[in-house]
Structures are given as structure tokens and as C-alpha cells.
Design a protein around this nucleic acid. Structure first.
Length: 478
DNA sequence: ATCGGCTCGCGCAA
DNA sequence: TGCGCGAAGCCGAT
């Protein structure tokens, strides 16, 4: 059962009599397991006695569309295809839009034969606008299901301005939600009617591009695919590796050579893995149960869950920090605008807006990793090559853009542009949080007041060099 | 190596 | 209203 709190009626439409199938429009939770949206669609199938059509599209015309993002999503489609094609009663339709706008009308066409349409409710990028627009067009009931996090988006109306107040809220309110989990494997034991046959004119009117022909799509080819592969199976592999070999030493994650992180951020971003599954697996590995929770540690960064220190640290990242961003994105559509920074940060950054800059770079110079600072350049090269930046250096990367851009607004634009364009987990509320943190969001003021930064937390390459062993990292990203 | 000071907002206690 | 506390800060004093 999908909790009511997670289901949103988008258009107030009706279930259509005589619909041939239930349509699941898979746009964010691109997986077959631990997926509330898929659960909701299947529960309609059972109620109406209908088969399921899973439609997983990838548009060509959105901002920053590139070989890198496309390849990752296509990996996911292949993994989903393997599982869904083998399931009786389900038809899987992945769709690669060959050119911007070429897919227009396809959803409406599919929905015209559907009894009800279910999609994913994710407060990220262009997805909310797209779902709202679809709701107006479709003449059938459209439900958007929130499977983004462990805390349902609609669980609270509060806006959290600092991380520790959100953490405190979670420690007080999250526990009951943890017992309402999506099905681990909803495809198992299904007894649906024969899979729907698709209208043959779909292939003629809406031809799908061949995944092998990425080069022919009108997307950014300069942003090449990275070594990191996408898909549900790859995410499972990483999760298993993390629990078996890494979580124990998760506390060492600031060291660039440590290899102790989950490396699941891109998979979470594209919905190839669910936070519910990650939580379940950690809990199983730790032999945890709710009685292990320490109520005296409410609001504390460590010690609340009653698991190993590595797991405490990781759960804080997965839940507090990840969902803090989702919460903000859900509550404030303009959470990526400069003006949404806290008052104290806006004030202090404005006070120092006209401070002289000894080093000043433009977006193209940053993009090409052409600054005077070898550490910064190495971090930027990692972003270009791998689509990610190591934990600690990611913060330094942003702080230095603030330091060297013409003003803080421009620093924000540069950070968002580079991150959205090159990072696999760019365009995610979670990524937006990290970038805004560099400008003071969720943080507090720190004295003494410094040039350019004002009271915003200051970081330097010099102290980073002292703190971390960077030799291998610098050599590798030379 | 470790500590206090810098500074602000939240939430609890009173 | 006061007080403790906080994603990773820095710096200078001990």
C-alpha cells in the first residue's frame, strides 16, 4: 500500500471506463524495485484487472542534455528492459526522443487508451512543470507519486533554514514513516492480464532513436560519457560493495584516496536506486531495530540511530542532507535563486561585493580549469572527466568560485552551470543545497569578517593542503 | 595538538 | 529571555 500522503492528484481527472491498460509514466524513479510509483500503478492494475504499460522517456531538448547524461539514463533503460520485458502482464516502452519536440503528443496518445496514469512526483529540474502541463492535457486521471525520500514531501509545511533543525525534526518524526516502505520486488508473483499490444502507428509517428546512435542526437557531445555506469543492477553492485568494504571506514571520506564512499549519488539522482532500499540494506547489515534508537541523542549528528559510527555518518548524509534539499525544493519553487539565501548571508555578501579581487576568472576560464590554483584545477578536471568531485574538494571548489568570481551572484551562476552541465548528480535538489551551502545556506556566520566572503564560512587551498594528502589526487588530475 | 574566539538562528528550559 | 549548540571554517595563543 502506498501511503496517501505520497499520492497527489494532478488534474482531478477520472478513471476511464474501457481503458486497455494502466500507464506508468516513469520520469524520475527509473527502477523496478522499491518504487512507490510502480506500486501505485500495479495496485490500479489489480483493482481494475488491467495490464501495465511502463513508459520511460528521455527527452532531447532539455538544458544540459549531453552524451554523459543520456548514456547514464540509457544504461538504466537497459536494466529496466531486462526485468520488465521478462514480466508477464507488463509492456515496457523506453523512448529516446530523436530531436527536441519529436516526442510531443506521445504521452497523450498512450494515455488515450489508459484507464489511469501514474507518474513520479519529484521536485527537481523541469519535472514539476512538465507534470503540471501534462495534467492539463490528459483527459484521464493523473496521479503523481512521491518516492523521492524516506520522509514524504508533504509530511511537513515547515521551511528549515539550518541543517540541525531539520535533523532534530527528523529524529522526532521520521520513525513511523520508515515502516511504510515500497515493495522490495513488486514484479514477483504478479498475475496481470496479457501485456497490452501497442498501436503499431506509435513506431511510425514517434520513432525512438537507437541508443547506439548517441552521436547523431542533437545533444551536447563535448560532455562525454564517464566510466561510471548507470542502471539498477550497477546501483545494487555499488550498494553491496559499500556495505561490504567501505561503510566501516566512511569516517575517512575527506581523504581523496580513501575510496570509502558509496558513489551512489548519480544513481539516486536518476532513481536507479531508492533511499528506502539503501536504508533497508544498512539496517539489515547493522542488525538494527527501532529499539536501538537513542532518544537522548535527538538532533545529534551521531548517536541517534544506534548503529556503527560509519553508518551513523552515512545515514546523516542520506537522510538529513539529502532530504533537506528535497524539502526546500518542494516548498520553494525558486529555491535556486540567489535571493533565497539567508538574510545574514545576503547582507554580508553584499557588504563585500565590491571588495577588490586579486584573482578574477570568468565561466570559460573556470570551465577550462585555468586558474592559478593546482588544487582547484584538479577538482575541476575531476568534474570534467568523472562527472563528480571528491567530497571535501567539492566544498573547496565552490568556496573558491565565490572567491574568484566578479560577484557572488555570478559565482552562483558559474557553480550551477558547471555542476548542472558536468556532474551526473547535477540538477538535483541535493546538488543545489551543496552549492548554496558554499554561499551560506544551512550554515551559520563565522567571524572574523574577511574580504569577499564576509562572514560566510571561509575555506582555503592552503589549509586543505595541510589537512589532506593530495599527492596522488593532484598527479591523477594533472 | 588543542583551545577559544569569531557570529547567528533555532529550540528548549525557565 | 537565556543558553547550548551547530557539515567539514580560520587564526593565533598556549
Amino acid at each position: 500500500m502506498v501511503p496517501e500522503l505520497r499520492v497527489r492528484e494532478v488534474n482531478g481527472g477520472e478513471v476511464r471506463d474501457g481503458g486497455r491498460y494502466v500507464l506508468y509514466w516513469m520520469i524520475a524513479e527509473r527502477r523496478t524495485r522499491f518504487n512507490f510509483g510502480l506500486d501505485q500503478a500495479l495496485s490500479w492494475c489489480r483493482e481494475l484487472g488491467l495490464p501495465l504499460l511502463v513508459f520511460e522517456p528521455l527527452r532531447a531538448g532539455y538544458d544540459h542534455a549531453s552524451d554523459r547524461i543520456h548514456q547514464f539514463v540509457i544504461d538504466g533503460m537497459q536494466a529496466n528492459g531486462h526485468r520488465l520485458a521478462a514480466t508477464p502482464g507488463i509492456r515496457y516502452l523506453p523512448y529516446l526522443e530523436p530531436a527536441p519536440g519529436k516526442g510531443r503528443g506521445l504521452l497523450e496518445h498512450l494515455a488515450a487508451a489508459a484507464a489511469v496514469v501514474v507518474t513520479d512526483d519529484r521536485p527537481a529540474f523541469f519535472l514539476p512543470r512538465m507534470v503540471t502541463a501534462a495534467g492539463k492535457k490528459l483527459a484521464v486521471r493523473l496521479q503523481a507519486v512521491d518516492g523521492s525520500g524516506l520522509l514524504p514531501l508533504r509530511a511537513t509545511d515547515r521551511i528549515f533554514t539550518v541543517a540541525h533543525s531539520f535533523r532534530r525534526y527528523l529524529h522526532a518524526e521520521l520513525l513511523p514513516h520508515l515502516f511504510e516502505t515500497p515493495a522490495a520486488d513488486p514484479l514477483m508473483g504478479l498475475a496481470l492480464p496479457k501485456a497490452p499490444v501497442l498501436d503499431p502507428q506509435i513506431a511510425r509517428r514517434w520513432p525512438s532513436a537507437d541508443p547506439k546512435d548517441l552521436g547523431k542526437l542533437p545533444i551536447e557531445h563535448a560532455v562525454a560519457p564517464v566510466e561510471t555506469r548507470g542502471g539498477e543492477a550497477e546501483a545494487e553492485r555499488r550498494l553491496t560493495r559499500f556495505l561490504a568494504e567501505r561503510i566501516e571506514r566512511y569516517g575517512e571520506r575527506n581523504q581523496p584516496d580513501a575510496k570509502v564512499t558509496s558513489e551512489l549519488s548519480p544513481h539516486l539522482h536518476f532513481g536507479h536506486v531508492s533511499p528506502h532500499e539503501i536504508f533497508d540494506r544498512i539496517v539489515a547489515a547493522e542488525g538494527w531495530n527501532p529499539e536501538r534508537v537513542n532518544p537522548d541523542a535527538k538532533g545529534k549528528r551521531e548517536g541517534y540511530w544506534g548503529v556503527s559510527s560509519g553508518a551513523e555518518g552515512f545515514l546523516d548524509q542520506l537522510i538529513t542532507w539529502r532530504e533537506l534539499g528535497f524539502c526546500a525544493a518542494h516548498r520553494q519553487k525558486d529555491h535556486d535563486r540567489y535571493e533565497t539565501l539567508p538574510e545574514w548571508a545576503l547582507r554580508t555578501l553584499a557588504d563585500h561585493e565590491n571588495d577588490p579581487r586579486d584573482d578574477l576568472y570568468t565561466l570559460p576560464e573556470f570551465e577550462a580549469a585555468k586558474t592559478h590554483d593546482p588544487i582547484w584545477n584538479a577538482a575541476q578536471r575531476q568534474l570534467l572527466r568523472e562527472g563528480t568531485i571528491q567530497n571535501y574538494l567539492r566544498m573547496l571548489w565552490g568556496k573558491k568560485i565565490l572567491h574568484w568570481a566578479v560577484n557572488p551572484r555570478e559565482a552562483l551562476r558559474i557553480m550551477l552551470t558547471l555542476n548542472d552541465r558536468y556532474a551526473l548528480d547535477g540538477r538535483d535538489p541535493n546538488s543545489v543545497s551543496g552549492i548554496f551551502w558554499c554561499l551560506g545556506r544551512y550554515d551559520r556566520a563565522w567571524g572574523p569578517e574577511r574580504p569577499i566572503f564576509g562572514k560566510v564560512r571561509y575555506m582555503t587551498s592552503e589549509s586543505t593542503r595541510r589537512k589532506l594528502d593530495l599527492r596522488r589526487y593532484l598527479a591523477h588530475f594533472d
